[in-house]
Design a protein around this nucleic acid. Structure first.
Length: 125
RNA sequence: CGAGUCGGCUGGGCGGUCGCGUCGGCGGGGGAGACCCCGUCGCCGAGGAACGUCCGGGCUCCACAGGGCAGGGUGGUCGUUAACAGCGACCCGGGGUGACCCGCGGGACAGUGCCACAGAGAACAGACCGCCAGCAGUUCGCUGCUGGUAAGGGUGAAACGGCGGUGUAAGAGACCACCGCACACCGGGUGACCGGUGUGGCUCGGUAAACCCCACCCGGAGCAAGGUCAAGAGGGACGACGGCUCGCCGCCGUCCUGCGCAGGCGUUCGAGGGCUGCCCGCCCGAGCCUGCGGGUAGACCGCUCGAGCCUGCCGGCAACGGCAGGCCUAGAUGGAUGACCGCCCAUCGGGAGGCCGUGAGGCACCCGUGGACAGAACCCGGCGUACAGGCCGACUCGUCCG
């Protein structure tokens, strides 16, 4: 599970990552990645404390119970991989309907493969 | 033992590793302060439906100057409640051998509308067949005309009370008994209504989830309510730089504005707004309305102690109410309450063929499978809907034994 500080909390942050970030599609999810966070126009934005992640689970995935379960599985999976991203990075994970029936193992494989494609060669482990 | 009716409870358990949120303790840091941040420890952390948002309330804001008309809701009676379209008991009607179940259950001599098709005839009824009488004809089978008749046939959702008898040419509440109906009286019940007696021979329908009439009830919007505090997002012009598909995009700086543009109405001869809608009336009153384009919704309070939950006693057939004692039980805001693993228990599938039993079957063993419906968002009371299974209680009918 991710602390609230490591999650995207504002709508503009989501739209920035989804519109300007790099994309990587996997069967169960689509990753949007922005390595450098844009300047906060409001000023006084806190210094970068680590990579952040946000989740988008639409109604096409399932009913409320299914959506919550997928979100929680994704949060747990992302938590284990977030340290690989630079401290200024934002990641948005958008779940596809196939994620509803996939287990945590499959979600983890898709996430790792997606991050490998997004990160430049020199940053890989 | 079999078949069934009603009601209640439950909604996987234990452990481990790693995490999340509120609150509290301790330590550290920042700040003038309010307070915030980090680390660590501890407590607590989804449901019976949290769901649908169909009713009813609390709470908040607006209004409180009323009257008339319109509109909406409810509909056996009596209770219950903060309130209800809920719940309880009872009444009436219908179904079942029974436990029990079902019913949008006021009014059709206040008025209006509708009642298809079939049928001879359908709301001041109606002779198609049939039955009976008379007359005429006759090939003695019957036929025609006139009249009587609503018992029978046929049509229909429904045919002018039902059934049996008396009666009659055949028939008919014409008359009689029973049942039904209407009215009156008596008795019982708070009441819906029920029981009894008498009288009347008794045509005079259905539909009000058709208009309508009657009785009772009903201000509007909703926690994005509402309050406090912060902040400007954005747009335009000019200029520099970068990119390329060469006139657009990205980005930076300065200036202007602090939603912009266009149109309409108006400041006591009053726009517009409020009093649920309309009219009358009343109040507030200097800005308001429309179109196009664009933007924002941050923090804190509200926010969880409440018609609250548990236990016991008392009143009541019950719904429910009263008293006493105890308890504190989620408060998120891109939205915590989780992820993974092991064992066990339901469930289902397969194997082996062990034990018990005449048998259907039951118990035990091994392997696999694997948990119904569904996620709080201001809070309650209901209703409705979804749901793998498991447990408990009361009662009815049938069969067997004693």
């Amino acid at each position: 599970m991710l602390p609230a500080q490591a999650r995207l909390r504002r709508r503009p942050e989501f739209t920035a990552v989804v519109r300007y970030g790099r994309r990587a599609g996997r069967p169960t999810m689509v990753l949007h990645y922005l390595s450098e966070r844009p300047e906060q126009p409001a000023g006084g934005s806190p210094p970068p404390t680590g990579a952040r992640a946000g989740f988008v689970v639409g109604k096409s995935v399932g009913n409320s119970v299914v959506r919550h379960r997928v979100t929680r599985q994704l949060r747990a999976v992302v938590r284990a991989e977030l340290h690989r991203l630079p401290v200024t990075a934002d990641l948005v994970v958008r779940a596809r309907p196939e994620a509803a029936t996939a287990g945590s193992d499959l979600l983890r494989r898709d996430l790792v493969a997606g991050i490998d494609r997004l990160l430049p060669e020199r940053v890989r482990r």
